[in-house]
């Protein structure tokens, strides 16, 4: 398993010191995903409640070195399985999952860390995978909704979403299920108020929040084998 340092020192396909990466070239045209990701944390923290872990995951503390601009080898550990890919460094974890691995449970909606439809769990923290670069997800343990339960079975959180009709069109649902799962992993006995306060990082357009609140409490009760406190 390559760690991040290995990756950043071993991927130079261009000249030494060539930092003319694709994302930097993009920035001259007005938009750089890398710059954008750096800037997103502030906007997010100002507008919605976001668990600490999410911001930390979305904003690595150390400035990464330069990779690319062409494809680089990327190894991702997803649902306990290793996947070897060749990706441009600018490819997000979400696009890697959806476009390269056909794991389409995580959805692309806002594509800039607002709506949570792309939520996956990385090293135990819920993250917006639209705003995590795939290369930065290396060495982490990534859980996607596909890994929650084998095909034909339902995870208790997914089951609670069905039972409480916590979904309509369903497009936000996988992200919400993962956010609830990550929340319950850390807070197995949440109160109703804690559920309300902690699931503000995901948006639903159809208006299923009433069902989602009930689903989170019911899943907590089932998973803990005792009642969640209402």
């Amino acid at each position: 398993m390559a760690d991040q340092d290995d990756l950043h020192h071993s991927t130079g396909s261009g000249e030494p010191g060539d930092d003319n990466s694709a994302s930097d070239r993009e920035s001259s045209k007005g938009f750089s995903r890398r710059q954008f990701i750096k800037g997103t944390g502030l906007a997010v923290s100002a507008s919605v409640f976001v668990p600490d872990g999410l911001l930390k995951a979305a904003m690595p503390e150390e400035t990464p070195g330069v990779s690319g601009p062409g494809e680089v080898p990327v190894r991702l550990r997803i649902n306990g399985r290793e996947h070897q890919l060749r990706l441009e460094p600018r490819v997000t974890l979400l696009d890697a999952l959806r476009n390269r691995l056909d794991m389409t449970g995580a959805k692309k909606v806002c594509d800039r860390a607002t709506c949570g439809a792309c939520t996956v769990i990385m090293d135990g923290h819920p993250v917006y995978s639209c705003t995590v670069l795939a290369i930065d997800a290396q060495g982490k343990s990534i859980e996607t909704i596909e890994g929650l339960a084998p095909e034909g079975k339902l995870h208790p959180v997914s089951q609670a979403f069905v039972d409480n009709d916590a979904q309509q069109c369903g497009f936000c649902t996988p992200g919400f299920v993962m956010a609830v799962k990550a929340f319950l992993d850390k807070h197995p006995h949440p109160t109703y108020d804690e559920v309300r306060a902690s699931l503000g990082g995901n948006l639903c357009r159809c208006g299923t929040y009433m069902g989602i609140r009930k689903a989170a409490l019911e899943a907590a009760a089932k998973m803990a084998g005792k009642g969640g406190r209402l």
């Binding site: 476009n99 389409t104 959805k107 909704i145 929650l148 095909e151 009709d165 916590a166 979904q167 649902t173």
Partner: peptide
């Protein structure tokens, strides 16, 4: 009655247009 396509959606396995490849 729970919607019959509920498990398909809440397991993330429902394939939307956006998910086709």
């Amino acid at each position: 009655i729970s919607r019959i396509d509920g498990p398909w959606k809440s397991s993330g396995r429902a394939k939307y247009t956006y998910d086709q490849g």
